[in-house]
Design a protein around this nucleic acid. Structure first.
Length: 906
DNA sequence: AGGGTCAG
DNA sequence: CTGACCCT
């Protein structure tokens, strides 16, 4: 190492490492599939440099996009470079972000290649008596080496000073440019001397000293290679110029003005989490307020774990006392089943500070299980704490815990924080929001999985059969991790736009509302459904027999593979569409088309639709009736969709058929109990109204204010007729246009929907935007915002990140653009109905606990069971509260219907 | 555009 | 896991 007083300046050739890291390292990706190998390679290289050169200024230089002066000198410069792989291109921006968060100066100078920036800064620094280390993977840089400039290849851990250059190349640094000109470079498309490789070039330079002298004595070189040299003489000066790294670029700043900043720890942590660099997450997480001067890196790592298993009354009392005093504690239940409606508590766990947690086992009942505290008496002892809203709890999906505790007569209150919702609001699509994923992403920790302790497959144990010691470790960890997750997520939520308000005012208050809806369940008429199943089975048998006769052979009507064989191989029907894998499609629209000419597709279609109804609804719904309550209890998922909507499963109550008569018979099986009616209240055209509000388009606002039939009004504008003259066909087209707008439609999509050609569809769209220019402006604005910010927002500030919006792949980019258009509208509608649900529930509980209860939500619709005597007042109050859930520039119209069953209520 | 479920 | 089909 050279002996100098001041530490050297380190100039990093970022671009050269980018390519090397990308090709040398395994193709690492995040759990979401974002490639990260190059990011990790480049960043770990920088971190190593920072360590290896303590006190040094580390400057990171990247090539800018676009042409440089070398392209002006020689138009074919770099013409042979293949385009940058997509997987590499999308790693560049993250690297820049991380470098900036590390506080390192990042230089990307337009029109100047990184080499020339480095050459210029190196020359300036050495002139001022400061030594320079250039970190690069590119051997061309050897030309810059001098007594005060050395190269280091951080990936191979090799350093090269003047002697090193001579040793490696056989020539001095000053001769490197001439050497490069002679050898040429195929990738950069720099022509050299044909057949002249490194050996010849070095031989010549050793003999003649430099390129000029060699060219004057070109006649002396013998043989074919001599001819090649003479042929090349004309272009060699150009090649030399191209190979020469500039040391005199006017950068408009000096090396002294380039200075590092302190690292932004929070930003760094966030980026490491985003790209899932576990070790670095662990290094930077800790308590979040870690001092910048972390001499001791241990201070920022995982806390010491101190887990206790509570088996005695003394232990329990000690914990209860601590929990009673805690400002906030983490809480988790372990149960016999994932289905809340039949789950019983097996144990509960708590954490009061990171690393300090306890498991209270109550019902482990395998052979030889240790004695535990009695479940019922212990739960009774916990009840006051759990039911007191002043004792604040944080949990992971506390709705589940609340439901399970309800099975034991405990009403969990004080749901102050929920890490699943924190993560969801922070970024709905970055991760799955289960605890294991969150621990990995935000804490960099791999947690014990349920399978680890309970096994998998048929031999999987239920929690009460799990060995108590293992269970205690697992359960206490859950509480501990939950608390630590909250400490990491809370500041991020506060620091990001209006996300904290979305979390605190919309999603969190909804938890108890959904919990109660789930617990109430919905009433269905199971015997009618069973009867319906019978009828469907009979009709399906008929269809099956007819289809077999038609096909001339027996086959499985449900098998697309067999259908393909019969339609396309045996009958030779035309292939209208293919599946993504290239097989001929048998999708509904295709069969619809084929049905014009043939009987078989018609039969298949009917059979399919009946079979779907039977298997999904008429057979399944009766089986899901809880023996305990006689009702069906769905699960609403609050952290699944990208846009902020809820989803529903087991059963999915949000896709009960409505379109066909057969389908509506299923809705008819959703009934009101004795003395009650079902009330179904839905927001009319909520997404279009939101579009009117967000865009502020005069025409659209006016139509809604006047209470017009919006599709009819659209048709009148687009087709240039009066509202009264709109034909039913025109209205149908206008409806499709309006839907298309909400979905961020393309002319292609609309043409397919309306079965018109692309040009006609484009014409409709043009006419629409001409008539509603505010909408066009709004869509352009949103698209631009999405590109600039990488996310879009709902009215309340809920964000949807769109990492693919700047993808190279045009298809992916366009899909992201459509989502950008759709998400603010769909998401705002979701925010509004969530708010409405909280308001309605509060009102009903306070004033009409015996008259009405909310039982279902279907995106823009709420379904209530209402006592017949209270119908009038409930309908009025419900409409009022739903309409009032948002203050838009247009009225929010709510239409409520009443009936004995769900179908009738529409 | 966003979901869940079923059969194969 | 995919294709098909149910919903807003």
């Amino acid at each position: 190492m050279s002996q100098t007083k001041t530490p050297p300046v380190v100039l990093v050739d970022g671009s050269s490492y980018l390519f090397r890291a990308f090709h040398a390292l395994p193709p690492l990706t995040t759990s979401k599939g974002h490639p990260t190998g190059a990011i990790k390679g480049v960043i770990s290289m920088l971190r190593r440099l920072e360590q290896d050169f303590p006190g040094s200024k580390v400057v990171v230089v990247f090539d800018a996009k676009g042409k440089t002066f070398r392209h002006d000198l020689y138009e074919d410069y770099k013409a042979n470079r293949p385009p940058m792989p997509e997987d590499l291109a999308i790693q560049i921006r993250p690297i820049h972000e991380i470098v900036e968060a590390m506080g390192l100066p990042l230089l990307i100078i337009p029109d100047v290649e990184a080499d020339d920036v480095i050459g210029t800064l190196a020359t300036e620094a050495t002139a001022k008596g400061v030594d320079v280390v250039i970190s690069t993977g590119d051997k061309d840089m050897a030309q810059l080496v001098s007594d005060h400039v050395t190269l280091i290849n951080t990936m191979t851990e090799t350093r090269m000073d003047r002697d090193g250059v001579v040793e490696k190349f056989g020539i001095a640094p000053e001769q490197i440019v001439d050497y490069l000109a002679l050898v040429g470079d195929t990738v950069d498309n720099i022509p050299g001397v044909t057949k002249c490789g490194p050996k010849t070039a070095v031989k010549w330079l050793q003999q003649y000293g430099d390129l000029d002298n060699l060219m004057t004595h070109a006649d002396e070189v013998k043989g074919k290679i001599g001819d090649n040299l003479r042929d090349a003489i004309e272009h060699l000066p150009l090649s030399r110029e191209l190979a020469t790294i500039r040391t005199d670029v006017d950068l408009h700043f000096g090396i002294e003005e380039v200075s590092p900043e302190p690292e932004h720890r929070e930003q760094l942590l966030k980026l490491f989490q985003e790209y899932e660099f576990k070790a670095w997450i662990a290094e930077y997480s800790g308590d979040g307020e870690a001092p910048d001067s972390a001499d001791d890196t241990q201070s920022a790592t995982t806390p010491e774990r101190e887990y206790e298993t509570i088996l005695t009354d003394e232990q329990l009392d000690a914990w209860l006392e601590q929990l009673g005093k805690a400002e906030l504690f983490a809480f988790d239940t372990e149960t016999t089943s994932l289905r809340y409606s039949e789950a019983e508590v097996v144990g509960v766990s708590f954490a009061i500070e990171p690393g300090k947690a306890a498991y209270l086992p109550l019902a482990h009942d395998y052979m030889g299980a240790p004695d535990q505290l009695d479940r019922d008496t212990t739960l009774a002892k916990l009840k006051p704490l759990l039911e007191d809203p002043k004792h604040k709890k944080v949990g992971q999906n506390l709705k589940y815990d609340k439901n399970v505790l309800a099975n034991h007569g405990i009403s969990l209150e004080g749901i102050a924080e929920d890490t699943m919702l924190e993560s969801y609001v922070l970024n709905s699509t970055a991760t799955r929001h289960d605890m294991n994923s969150l621990a990995l992403k935000y804490l960099g920790e791999k947690t014990i999985s349920f399978e680890d302790i309970a096994g998998k497959g048929a031999k999987q144990l239920t929690f009460n059969q799990v060995d108590l010691e293992k269970a205690a470790e697992y359960a206490a960890e859950d509480a501990d991790i939950t608390l630590r997750l909250h400490q990491v997520l809370r500041p991020q939520l506060r620091d990001t736009g209006r996300l904290d308000a979305v979390y605190r005012d919309i999603d969190l208050p909804l938890v108890p509302v959904l919990s109660r809806m789930e617990q109430r369940g919905a009433l269905i008429d199971a015997s009618t459904l069973r009867q319906h199943s019978q009828e469907l089975a009979e009709r399906m048998a008929e269809l099956e027999q007819e289809a077999h006769e038609e096909a001339g052979e027996s086959f499985n009507l449900g098998s697309t593979k067999q259908l393909q064989a019969i339609f396309y191989d045996k009958m030779g029907l035309p292939v209208i569409k293919k599946t993504p894998k290239g097989a001929p499609s048998t999708a509904e629209p295709v069969l619809q088309e084929l049905a014009h000419e043939h009987r078989l597709p018609r039969l298949i279609l009917e059979h399919r639709s009946l079979s779907k109804l039977k298997s999904t609804y008429t057979d399944t719904l009766p089986e899901l009736v809880s023996p305990r309550t006689g009702r069906i209890h769905t699960s609403y998922h609050q952290a699944v969709t990208a846009t902020g909507r809820l989803s529903s499963s087991e059963p999915n109550l949000q896709n009960i058929p409505v379109r066909t008569e057969q389908g509506r018979r299923i809705r008819q099986a959703f009934v009101a109990p004795e003395g009650h009616k079902l009330v179904a209240a839905d927001y009319s055209q909520i997404e279009l109204r939101i579009m009117a509000h967000l865009s502020g388009d005069k025409g659209l606002l006016g139509a809604f204010e006047r209470g017009e039939d919006i599709h009819r009004a659209t048709a009148a504008e687009v087709f240039g007729v009066t509202v009264d003259d709109v034909s039913s066909d025109q209205r149908r087209s206008a409806k499709a246009i309006n839907f298309g707008l909400i979905y961020g439609m393309s002319a292609f999509g609309l043409s397919r929907q309306l079965e018109v050609d692309r040009k006609t569809a484009q014409d409709y769209i043009d006419r629409y935007f001409h008539r509603y220019p505010g909408v066009l402006e709004y869509m352009d604005r949103i698209r631009k915002q999405a590109h600039d910010d990488g996310f879009v927002e709902t009215l309340a500030g809920r964000r949807l990140y769109l990492p693919e919006i700047n993808a190279r792949n045009k298809q992916m980019q366009q899909a992201a653009e459509r989502t950008a258009i759709n998400a603010p509208m769909q998401g705002t509608a979701a925010d509004i109905i969530k708010r409405a649900m909280v308001t309605v529930e509060d009102w009903l509980l306070a004033e009409h606990a015996d008259d009405a209860r909310m039982v279902m939500q279907v995106h823009d619709e709420l379904i209530l069971e209402v006592r017949e005597s209270a119908l009038e007042v409930i309908c009025r109050g419900l409409e009022e509260r739903m309409s009032g859930a948002a203050d838009l520039k247009v009225p929010l119209l709510v239409e409520a219907g009443v009936g004995d069953n769900w179908d009738e209520a529409h």
